[in-house]
């Protein structure tokens, strides 16, 4: 009888202790909320937001200051891509200097809507022409805007890439 009463009150006191223990954790965090808050106010911190070097946002074709890229049109990335996100349209054109017919890219089409950022195209590229950009704000109002042409108008192949 007394044993049961003792057990009853012990149970209640232990439960209260457990509850207070939990409240101590949340209490500790609200007391130090200023220091502990982890929220980043995203659109406001755009200027200071620094992505990691290896962050994979989208595929970009690198151009240098003379509007030259390093893509020879070998289509290795197109083959490596598991989703068909890359389409390279190339043509054989006459080189104005040597007069020989040479393979050149017309358009480097990139379907961002299909890309899974798996990085396989970057690994496949023999001339390091493409890399993963850091831009992650891809939202657009129309799906067609997600199909991009990566080579800039009038851009040429950089010299010495093919050798």
């Amino acid at each position: 009888m007394f044993r049961a009463i003792y057990e009853y009150f012990k149970e209640i006191l232990l439960a209260i202790r457990g509850l207070i223990n939990g409240m101590r954790i949340t209490g500790k965090y609200i007391a130090h909320a200023r220091k502990e808050i982890i929220t980043q106010e995203y659109p406001d911190n755009r200027d200071t937001l620094q992505m990691f070097d290896r962050f994979r946002g989208e595929v970009v074709l690198l151009h240098n200051e003379n509007n030259e890229h390093r893509c020879t049109g070998c289509s290795a990335c197109e083959v490596a891509c598991p989703n068909g996100s890359i389409e390279i349209i190339w043509a054989r054109r006459e080189d104005p200097e040597t007069g020989k017919k040479k393979k050149q890219i017309e358009t480097f089409v990139y379907h961002l809507s299909m890309c899974t950022m798996c990085n396989l195209c970057i690994l496949a590229c023999p001339t390091d022409a493409i890399k993963m950009g850091h831009d992650f704000e891809h939202a657009v109002f129309d799906r067609s805007q997600l199909t991009k042409v990566l080579n800039r108008p009038g851009s040429k192949l950089e010299k010495g890439v093919e050798e």
Partner: peptide, 10 residues
């Protein structure tokens, strides 16, 4: 607001 501070949010 209070719930956010409990949860380390703003």
């Amino acid at each position: 607001r209070v719930c956010a501070f409990f949860q380390l949010r703003l």
